[in-house]
Design a protein around this nucleic acid. Structure first.
Lengths: 143, 143
DNA sequence: TATTGTTATACTCTATAACTATA
DNA sequence: TATAGTTATAGAGTATAACAATA
């Protein structure tokens, strides 16, 4: 993509937009060997942390609509990375968990992600990375 | 959207994703009175800063493909906010500028955006906002 | 009646590749 | 040949609303 320098006094919004876009591109490249998009990778991570868990809980962690979760879990199911099972305690609900392949892919994906992050964030010192995280977190928590 | 607290140790990538999504939602709400999406608002801002300017230059500032610019300028044209004219120096090129309505809308939009930003960022001190901007900028510049 | 998840539908943002009209 | 922009096509991510099954 052709680029120009950013304007002299970019708003935080512009910076956030560009940073998120860069992140998406990099995450997209990082997940390519496994055919996993950034959104799918995030869902895999959440499911891995909480499995077995309901779709509604996944939606809350991902902070997206139930609709989006149905889709992303469908697509991960097609890849063979997650399994659905009815919740015995509430037959309206669906429990989702990682398959063996899903567990393996998540591990490899996390390794790839960390190595890409190390690369991208290497321009910032560890203290600066912490500070950035702290500030972003406050933004995301109140929002 | 239903929400859960973030994980104890969220990666910078997760934070960036959530922050950008929050930004998009807020920017989307802020532009609604004028029927302008966040992407359209960004394009309007770039055109306002550089007008009259070529589509290719707009693409470089926005850091997106020429394809996306054709679309967004089309849509802004339909809203009556921008005008296209052939570049007299190079008839392959197209110069785009704001109409009177576009100029007015951009002003109002910027006011709305700043007021929303003041609200969202008010949890951070001015020094922290500067620091966040500085860190993000380094991330975006090297990426 | 309320909740869980699905279907139906639609919009925004982004990309690559092939084409056109100039240069 | 190379560049500017458009058309054609595709896919990711997200949302709202109406609905079925179950509680």
């Amino acid at each position: 993509m052709p680029r120009r320098p950013l304007p002299a006094d970019p708003s935080l919004g512009e910076l956030l937009t560009h940073a998120a876009r860069t992140l998406r591109r990099r995450a997209s490249a990082a997940g390519e060997p496994w055919g996993v998009s950034p959104h799918q990778a995030r869902a895999l991570r959440v499911i891995g942390r909480h499995q077995p868990t309901r779709l509604g809980i996944v939606a809350e962690h991902l902070r997206v609509s139930p609709r989006s979760v149905t889709d992303v879990v469908d697509s991960l199911g097609k890849l063979g990375y997650v399994d659905r099972a009815p919740d015995p305690d509430d037959r309206r609900a669906t429990l989702v968990s990682l398959t063996e392949a899903g567990t393996r892919v998540l591990t490899e994906l996390e390794r790839a992600r960390r190595s890409d992050a190390d690369d991208w964030f290497s321009g910032l010192s560890p203290a600066e990375q912490d500070e950035l995280g702290r500030l972003l977190r406050r933004l995301v928590d109140d929002a």
